[in-house]
Simulated scan of single mutants.
Amino acid sequence: MTKNNIENKEFEGERPLYAMHGLHLNNVTIHAGESALKECSNIVCENCRFEGKYPLWNTINFKVHNCLFTEGSRAALWYSENLEMTDTIVEAPKMFRDMKNLHLNRVKLTNAQETLWNCQGIRLENVTADNADYIMMHCADIEIDNLVLNGNYSFQYSKNIVIRNSILNTKDAFWETDNCTVYDSEINGEYLAWNSRNLRLVRCHITGTQPLCYCDGLILEDCTFGADADLALEYSSVQGNIKGHIVSIKNPRTGNIAIDSVGEIIIDNNIKAPADCKVIVKNDKKCV
């Protein structure tokens, strides 16, 4: 894959390695400047430090291992394809925009604000993302395993998502998403998944007020709800089996819900047609 080795070097300024191909960078520092490796291909970066802006734009086929992207390298990876990033710390915001086919494993994103926008073919494994407001907007074809996410408004307008074994601390998550499945995860935050389509939650624990409202095609399989998860499922179409207790369910639009126990089922004049959702309270042996 690589032809030319560059080791123990420092670069700065405008485009010092512009449009080069077949490089292996080891222990290289990219100081302040712009577009250090723009329009490159077949690049390996190991043990490197990135301080300047936009270093890897329009890059094709590249590997990043054991590197550091400082805050100054904001917007470092845009318009690029075929990235493998491992054991790397990213301190810069606004990373990964308009990209295709990216795989992150054992990566820490310490300032993930507005990161991963308009990307296709995303695979995350063992990733932590902090300060991650608006992460992963307008993305598609996403596979995630063991993500710890701290940041609001995540996954908005994204589609074709599978998430496993993750902890998502995020208000307004999954708004307007299409075709999302979450397995064995904890989802904490208010107003979960409003206006989503074909969301499936399997063995998940959900906290936060007013979850899962205005959903179309919602499926809940053996999920549990926290003590603050009230006024759930308003105006949603849902097929669900809920374990344990839920504080309150309000005006589910249609479908079937089986639940162990519920504090209150609110059906009022504002319920939307067809207004035929059946709620079976198993411990009380009642059907509403």
Rank of each mutant, 00 (worst) to 15 (best):
L83Q: 00
K100F: 01
N152Q: 11
N160M: 10
I135C: 10
C67G: 11
P93G: 09
N165E: 15
L68Q: 12
D98A: 07
T128F: 12
F155H: 00
T110M: 14
T170W: 06
T128N: 15
L68A: 14
N152P: 01
G151T: 12
C119V: 03
N160I: 08
K171D: 10
Y54S: 07
N169M: 08
L109K: 08
Y153P: 03
I135W: 00
K94Q: 15
V127F: 12
G52V: 08
V148D: 02
K108G: 10
I167P: 00
T115M: 12
W78H: 13
G72Q: 05
Y79A: 03
V148P: 01
E125I: 12
L83W: 01
T86A: 04
V107W: 11
D98R: 06
L168Q: 03
I167S: 02
F155C: 00
T115F: 13
L56T: 01
K159D: 02
P93Q: 03
N105F: 06
G52R: 02
W78V: 07
A92E: 05
A75R: 08
R97V: 14
D87A: 13
N105Y: 10
I163K: 03
E143C: 05
K63D: 11
F96E: 09
S154W: 00
W57R: 06
T128K: 14
G52H: 08
N150I: 11
Q113D: 13
E143I: 04
S158L: 07
K108N: 15
H103N: 11
K100W: 04
P55S: 05
N61P: 02
A112R: 03
Q113R: 14
P93I: 07
I122F: 11
K53N: 09
L77F: 12
T59D: 04
F155T: 03
W57G: 01
L116T: 08
I144E: 02
N165P: 03
R164P: 05
L147A: 08
E91I: 12
T86S: 11
A92M: 13
Y54G: 02
E91A: 11
I144Y: 02
Q120Y: 04
V64F: 09
T59V: 11
L77W: 04
Q120H: 09
L56M: 13
I144W: 04
A129T: 07
A140S: 12
P55M: 06
L149M: 06
P93W: 11
